[in-house]
Amino acid sequence: MKSLIKILVLAVVLVSVSCNKSTAPNYQFMPNMYESAGYETYGEAAFPNGVEAQIPAEGSIPRGFVPFDIENSTAGYDLAKATLSNPLDSTKVDLNRGKELYDIYCGICHGNKGNGQGNLVKREKILGIPSYDDAGRAINAGSIYHTIYYGKNAMGSYANQLNEEERWQVVSYVLKLKADLEK
């Protein structure tokens, strides 16, 4: 009987040791050195909605921010297409960075060549991505920027993933892809 208990104990120990992926965090030594009194990023906090990640006060802007006056509508899109142009001159356009950002944020649907054949399209997850040389759309710098800023139809806004300068870098790179496609 005693040997049976020993075997059981051994089995329990083996099982508990072998499952090293735990759903609870480990013990901490002196936890008050690990966890400060300040709020953790994305943590809970004593705000009315209970979260640390608060929206900035209304009307506040980040340093160096230039407001984008054109509104999110079809009229705004047409206005951007007609009037907006790239503020980056040829010395500031960095197509390598534009490509890097484009491949991360746009290429997954629009394809790394801009022909509308990204990985998600090939796998039939998202359909109907137009090629940049589509004649009916006839995109230009202003319309591309407006679309990145607000999104269009099923495409969402990328204003929170790309800052203003990065958006214009991507616009420059998209125009290069469009020119390549039209060759």
Partner: peptide, 12 residues
């Protein structure tokens, strides 16, 4: 030495 180490931590 594994106290405070969360290697393999896999919460739901």
């Amino acid at each position: 030495s594994q106290i405070g180490v969360d290697q393999g931590y896999q919460p739901v």
